[in-house]
């Protein structure tokens, strides 16, 4: 993103990035659980990863002006 002149526009959706990363983590885990039949395992792992990843992503977006 460093070549772009207006990376700040991504910041419009910072709030939704956090929530939608959590949601998509749970969604992915749910689908994988459904496929493998291991009910609560992957939804918890992927949900947790989505939670961590969402926070990490938002933290990076807000602190790094270059938005790597």
């Amino acid at each position: 993103m460093s070549e772009s002149k207006k990376p700040g526009l991504l910041l419009i959706g910072v709030g939704q990035i956090l929530t939608s990363m959590i949601v998509s983590g749970f969604l992915l885990g749910y689908l994988l659980d459904l496929y493998l039949g291991t009910q609560p395992i992957f939804i918890l792992i992927f949900g947790g990863l989505g939670f961590i990843g969402g926070f990490l992503k938002v933290y990076r977006l807000l602190t790094d002006p270059e938005l790597q």
Partner: peptide, 21 residues
Amino acid sequence: PANIVMTTIEEIAKPLSLGLR
């Protein structure tokens, strides 16, 4: 392994947030 899951989640989150917003 964590990277694969994390990036997949991130990629899925993009259209999800775009549509849901």
